[in-house]
Amino acid sequence: MPRRRPGALRAEQRDRRTGEATPPDRIHGLSARTSGAIDRVERFSDDYHLHPGATDRALRRYRSFVGPPGRKPRYPRAARCSCRGCSFDDVRHARDVLADVLRRLPAGARGELRRHVARLDDAYRARTLPDPFAGRRQWRSDLWWRRRLADGPEGG
């Protein structure tokens, strides 16, 4: 019978101790420690929109919105459905999730994620236009990313 590698045995023991079926996935661009802290926040949250994998999905959505090259302004569009999956069609919801995670993280992990999100925020500000009537149109006009012109065709 073949011998099992020591690393595989240690991983199995670690899973038995913590009760987790699999170790958390590492989020692209973040350290393993921050990814682990985010995983703990997501697992123990009672918020409907903050579930395991939500932060990774929000970061990917935010990157894809600000990522395409060009100078044309981009307009966030509202999601057609408010379920967990479809709500990420609205990039503003993705930013809401990131803000919620930032509030719940411990200090070290919060700083790393905040620096990562700040670069995306700068690109978002550069690619979108301010909405002077956001106070009347938006239900969360206190958030700066909701005070941008929206509901046009995404992509400009």
Results as ranks from 00 to 15, higher is better:
Asp25Ile: 13
Arg26Trp: 12
Arg26Val: 13
His28Trp: 05
His28Met: 14
Gly29Lys: 10
Leu30His: 05
Leu30Cys: 02
Leu30Gln: 08
Leu30Asp: 14
Ser31Met: 05
Ser31Gly: 09
Thr34Gly: 01
Ile38Val: 15
Arg43Asn: 07
His49Cys: 11
Leu50Gln: 06
Gly53Asp: 13
Thr55Tyr: 11
Asp56Glu: 15
Leu59Pro: 00
Tyr62Asp: 11
Tyr62Leu: 05
Arg63Glu: 11
Ser64Gln: 06
Ser64Ile: 02
Phe65Ser: 05
Val66Cys: 01
Val66Gln: 00
Pro68Glu: 10
Pro68Thr: 15
Pro68Gln: 11
Pro69Cys: 10
Pro69Asn: 14
Pro73Cys: 13
Arg74Glu: 01
Tyr75Pro: 01
Pro76Trp: 10
Arg84Gly: 01
Arg84Thr: 08
Cys86Phe: 04
Cys86Trp: 03
Asp96Arg: 15
Val97Glu: 07
Leu98Pro: 02
Asp100Asn: 10
Leu102Cys: 08
Leu105Ile: 04
Pro106Val: 09
Ala107Asp: 00
Gly111Arg: 12
Leu113Asp: 06
Leu113Val: 06
Arg114Gly: 07
His116Pro: 03
His116Met: 08
Val117Asn: 10
Ala118Arg: 14
Arg119Ser: 12
Arg119Leu: 07
Asp121Lys: 09
Arg125Asn: 15
Leu129Trp: 09
Leu129Cys: 12
Pro130Ser: 12
Ala134Met: 01
Arg136Ile: 00
Gln138Met: 09
Arg140Glu: 07
Trp144Ile: 02
Trp145Gln: 09
Leu149Val: 14
Leu149Asn: 04
Pro153Trp: 11
Glu154Gln: 09
Gly156His: 05
